[in-house]
Design a protein around this nucleic acid. Structure first.
Length: 435
DNA sequence: TCTGGGGTCCTAGGACCC
DNA sequence: TCTGGGGTCCTAGGACCC
């Protein structure tokens, strides 16, 4: 009796990682097609350093994190276009991508602004077909290029996506299922351990010191020993390389975490307590706006202010205080933050960053308040009112205390090269002229 | 002059309890 | 009075990610 013919393509359950190629640069090009083919870099807040680069900019050798002031002249000579970060635009385009991805799977995990994991089931040709359709669809509907990696685990899917991006012949889609075990071994053997998802600079150093140089070395090591020597994360990564799914991810969507933070560097240092008061007024409003947007109230306020990392020794003020009862009121948060920071400021210090973080979050309105402690039941309306007025106006026109100065204060964040928010603001819509 | 912001997860150590 | 193991919970800090 002859053995039944092997099914050439059994159905598989796989993770697909969809990753936008040079996301921020791609977003800038959506509304400015003139940027296509040119080297584009996107800068961090305050136009401080490079946080995203187009292929062309990478080819010119612009490194991630390069301080802009150091390459600005050089960049100009080489035709590099710099843009201030425009998170409103990127967020809006990201949401559209995620909506499209949702049509292809019942299990969508948005991992970051430009990456999402999809759980797909099908034969290998079906999976590859789906990935190609996703790619074509996003390119057609939004003008954004994406790469797709397919594998039995998230760690391998990351690796596959890396391959899809760097091997043009693959057409932007790669799956580990396309390779024989020997070929996969060869791929792992040429993957430096530091390139793996979950292995940063510190771990790379420690792993290399133990003669674990490549992804293959890690996949062959004993998980129990890895666990005791390097921790749970490394053991999991090793198992994932063997095809055993064991890395779970939390959503990076901030909406349901136990903490909300707003912090920024200043464009010029702050030295006086009246300026710091201004800063904290604005930050208290920003952080409580986020809190209200997610429908939470905070039970603790943490605030910090610090001098530059590049001027030693660093002087930092940081402390927390509990607030009872829980609140989303900017006035309460501001008062708490002022109490934590202002008394400890040292006069001649130049502060360059500050932030307010709210913790101990709970859904708004859940906590019953004992009557003797219900200080001002109407107080919490103030923040919501400010939000509403500013939303109607489309920009901050009113604010608490110093928070709505008619002209921007000296320390306010610099964003001199920001493109228009063409998908979210009527008065910044892109103009199209018929040729 | 000028160097990002906002998260998640894990671990170690201390307090406390039975 | 002294001795002990083994839980849970919390917090601070480290490492990583995009």
């Amino acid at each position: 009796m002859s053995a039944p013919a092997a099914r050439p393509h059994p159905p598989l359950t796989r993770y697909a990682l969809v990753d936008v190629d040079s996301c921020f640069a791609a977003c800038e090009r959506v509304l400015h097609p003139g940027l296509v083919g040119r080297p584009v870099v996107v800068l961090s807040n305050n136009d401080g350093c490079v946080i995203a680069r187009s292929q062309e900019a990478k080819a010119l050798g612009v490194a991630m994190g390069t301080p802009w002031f150091r390459i600005a002249t050089w960049a100009d000579r080489h035709g590099v276009v710099a843009r201030s970060s425009n998170y409103e635009l990127y967020g809006s385009l990201s949401r559209r991508i995620m909506e499209i991805l949702g049509e292809y799977t019942a299990f969508l995990q948005v991992y970051s602004i430009d990456e999402a994991f999809l759980l797909l089931r099908g034969t290998l040709p079906e999976l590859l077909g789906t990935a190609r359709r996703i790619r074509a669809r996003i390119l057609h509907d939004l003008g954004m290029p994406v790469s797709v990696g397919i594998a039995p685990t998230r760690t391998l899917a990351k690796l596959a996506t890396h391959g899809a991006k760097h091997t043009p012949a693959l057409g932007g889609v790669a799956s580990t299922d396309c390779y024989s075990p020997e070929q996969l071994r060869a791929i792992l053997a040429t993957t430096p351990i530091g390139d793996l998802w979950g292995v940063g600079r510190r771990l790379e150093k420690r792993l290399r010191a133990r003669h674990l140089q490549t992804a293959l070395d890690l996949s062959l090591a004993d998980p129990h020993r890895l666990r005791s020597r390097f921790g749970l994360g490394v053991a999991r990564t090793a198992l994932e390389l063997r095809g055993v799914p064991c890395v779970e991810i939390g959503s990076r969507d901030a909406a349901r975490t136990g903490q909300v933070m707003f912090s920024r560097s200043f464009s010029t240092p702050v030295t006086t307590s009246s300026e710091m008061h201004q800063v904290l007024s604005v930050y208290a409003q920003n952080v409580t706006r986020r809190l209200r947007a997610q429908g939470s109230e905070a039970g603790s306020v943490w605030a910090f202010a610090a001098t530059s990392w590049y001027v030693q020794p660093v002087h930092q003020i940081a402390d927390a205080v509990a607030v009872q009862p829980r609140t989303d009121d900017p006035v309460t948060v501001l008062r708490a933050a002022l109490g934590l920071i202002l008394p400890r400021m040292i006069p001649e210090k130049r502060y360059v960053r500050a932030g307010i973080s709210l913790g101990d979050l709970a859904p708004a309105g859940r906590q019953p308040v004992l009557e003797p402690f219900a200080v001002d039941p109407r107080g919490s309306q103030v923040g919501a009112l400010i939000d509403e007025v500013n939303a109607v106006a489309g920009k901050p026109v009113i604010g608490l205390g110093y928070a709505a100065l008619p002209s921007p204060p000296d320390w306010q964040m610099r964003r001199e090269m920001r493109s228009n928010r063409g998908t979210t603001h009527w008065d910044e819509l892109t103009t199209v002229r018929a040729g």
